[in-house]
């Protein structure tokens, strides 16, 4: 196909990218603003980054967010993987449709409802809201995303690999840990990263289920912004963007290198 750089194409691309990324670019630029006014450029400065690291409230919130993210992503990955295994391996058991529906319902459930229902549950059973409840809530909603990612990998998994392992004398549990798990590991890692990302940027469910001393970064930022945007917040967001961007770039570079290496190997093998 011929790429034609007509005026129309150029304009639509520029507008499209501007719509998507201009706000982020502005945010990054203004995080280096020397002026305290968020919308007026007063020269280059990194003072807000210094201020950010001295801001106990924001740093505490960041630490809570990371801990909640790590724990909830890990537990959700274990549970989501088990759910995916059950759904792909045991295609006929009583209540399978119900189970599958319940596993995937949080995907489409409005967050407000998930958050509110969890809040009601915690209140009803007298569970003090705090770090535990936020983490539990995050496990609940991110588990289904892990299940989706792992299930799609398991669908294309060649069962004869497991049969071969058992045929060679490995009992089922050993087969799972030595064959199945290593082969589906990339999907499990993607699932974990997805769960972690969802957890660290969740606002709605965290707001419902969090309590004193367990304020997450998005909650903190949101509450501060309501009092007026400070350049400190811009700096915090810029750091978040940088971390996510670096993660994505590393992942895609590694993927690309693996792909190239694989292609080269296969061509070499074809030649004999």
């Amino acid at each position: 196909m011929n790429a034609t750089w007509s005026r129309f194409n150029i304009v639509s691309i520029v507008l499209g990218f501007a719509f998507l990324y201009l706000p982020i670019v502005l945010l990054v630029i203004f995080s280096f603003n020397a002026s305290k006014l968020v919308t007026v450029w007063g020269g280059f400065s990194t003072q807000w980054y210094v201020a950010l690291f001295n801001n106990r409230g924001l740093m505490d919130a960041a630490w809570v967010t990371i801990r909640v993210g790590l724990i909830s992503a890990t537990v959700a990955t274990v549970l989501g993987t088990l759910a995916a295994l059950t759904l792909t391996r045991y295609t006929r058991f009583r209540g399978r449709v119900l189970f599958s529906g319940m596993v995937f319902a949080p995907l489409v459930m409005p967050e407000v409802i998930t958050g509110l229902s969890l809040l009601l549950l915690f209140v009803a059973i007298g569970f003090d809201r705090g770090f535990m409840t936020v983490t539990l809530a995050h496990i609940t909603f991110s588990m289904c995303f892990v299940a989706v990612v792992v299930q799609s990998r398991l669908m294309s998994f060649d069962r004869s690999l497991e049969e071969a392992a058992m045929d060679l004398g490995a009992p089922p549990v050993k087969t799972f840990f030595q064959i199945t798990l290593p082969v589906i590991m990339p999907a499990i890692v993607s699932g974990w990263m997805l769960a972690f990302t969802l957890s660290i940027d969740d606002l709605v469910i965290s707001s419902f289920t969090s309590g004193p001393g367990a304020t997450t970064l998005p909650m903190k930022i949101y509450s501060q912004v309501r009092l007026g945007v400070t350049p400190e917040i811009n700096a915090a967001c810029t750091l978040l963007i940088a971390i996510v961007a670096i993660g994505v770039i590393i992942a895609s570079l590694a993927n690309k290198r693996r792909e190239v290496q694989r292609l080269r190997d296969e061509q070499a093998a074809q030649r004999g």
Binding site: D158, S160, L161, E163, A164, A165, M166, D167, L168, G169, A170, P171, I179, P182, V183
Partner: peptide, 20 residues
């Protein structure tokens, strides 16, 4: 007798080599 205790081994049509 489960497959892992049978004194038979199988060569699979897809070869089923462990990719990792």
């Amino acid at each position: 007798i489960p497959p892992y205790r049978r004194p038979v081994n199988m060569m699979f049509q897809s070869y089923a080599l462990f990719p990792h």
